[in-house]
Design a protein around this nucleic acid. Structure first.
Lengths: 216, 216
DNA sequence: ACGATAACCGCATTCAGTGCCATTTCGCCA
DNA sequence: TGGCGAAATGGCACTGAATGCGGTTATCGT
């Protein structure tokens, strides 16, 4: 029951697996619905499980906690960044590759589009437990990306520096977002936010980009 | 009872306040003792309260949660950074000031010295709830520092960029630390940790140091 | 010394999360 | 196709964090 033990063989999609995926989605949907209607704290796991027509106990076979419901495909997004790094161009430096990878995640992020994403954005700012979890996920992603980056440039950067570099990039972006998204006005204009983020990250990251281009 | 409502008048330290401070310290001490002996998850709030000779209910008048016990003076440290920024030298740029502020926090941090600090370091790596809280505190500190930085350089940097810059610095340092402290060897030798921290900071911030010295 | 205020703390309650275990469902192979 | 082993389900009981309520006690300012 624990995790996706059914995905033993890559190609195979058993009935069990499909059913499992369906139930999982039902849980996310039910949670989305209830969160939207009643708020995060006001919705209990029992409510969600009932709405998805499974037992309360069974819920924990799908998600380890209530917060996880708001980060249903975080692995996928990290994987996208990892892939972007793995497919480095021949003349790219670490900073360029990293920037490209993070932009990819940010761009095809369906933020604003999907309902879960909207809820996530909302609850990250209002519910401490959710914010804590979000930061943790980010922190772990940061490390994996850094590791991958070091692996992609074995003789240019070690793992410590790679994770530090990744931390700097992600830190800059999320720092800028933290301030920008505090302004309820701005939330209504995605293009403006993107613009402001780019400007802020330029300020914060210029030295690294210069440095990776080598001395001029 | 909520927070330090007794600190109405700056100069006054009433009996009540002193007693309150003593009880608070007793809680931290009791928790330290029990955490060291039995571990974090194995120690309940009821245990801690009992050891400090107060009712379980009263505990929540001092700390909002079990995690807070591991971050008893986080405000003080942030304040130190804020002060360091406020006292900017006339020829310092934002990056120098920020670097000086963060070094100050890192230096007179009694990490390794005090028992709570050692426990914090340990549990941040092993207990998800503690890590989540630590990241949250860091995130908030980041914002305040950025705000102060923007205030110190009103016509050189706006708040968004200031927080982004701070995020980049802190992200780089904590990223490096994340990797360095993973090595259990290193934890046994405080001087080595400080050394590693400094080295990591240097590695992560080298581009900035170069850049702020101007083009060469 | 006294009235207001804040601290203390027991009690009951809610909810997250876990361990245990009986039952059902499904995958796979003979 | 039948049946065996593994995994999913979910009920029950339990622990522990956290909050609300309310009565009692200690402290403060006057």
């Amino acid at each position: 029951m624990l995790v996706c033990a059914g995905c033993r063989y890559a190609g195979r999609v058993s009935l069990r697996d499909r059913k499992r995926a369906r139930t999982r989605q039902a849980l996310v949907d039910a949670a989305t619905e209830l969160f939207e209607r009643n708020g995060y704290d006001e919705t209990t796991i029992a409510d969600i499980a009932a709405a998805a027509e499974i037992g309360t106990r069974t819920f924990f076979g799908y998600f380890a906690s209530k917060e996880e419901l708001l980060f249903p495909e975080s692995d996928v997004r990290v994987q996208a960044a990892l892939d972007a790094i793995a497919s480095r161009g021949p003349d790219e430096g670490p900073a360029e590759v990293l920037l490209r990878a993070l932009r990819k995640v940010g761009d095809d992020s369906d933020e604003m589009v999907s309902r879960v994403a909207a809820l996530r954005l909302r609850f990250v700012r209002t519910v401490p437990a959710v914010r804590g979890r979000a930061l943790q996920i980010q922190f772990e992603a940061q490390r994996e990306i850094g590791r991958q980056l070091a692996a992609a440039f074995p003789d240019e950067i070690d793992e410590v520096s790679a994770v530090a570099l990744t931390g700097a990039f992600i830190g800059a972006v999320s720092g800028a977002l933290q301030v920008l998204l505090d302004d309820p006005e701005r939330l209504r204009d995605p293009a403006g936010v993107r613009e402001a983020v780019n400007r802020a990250t330029d300020v914060a990251l210029t030295p690294w980009l210069r440095a990776s281009r080598g001395p001029e």
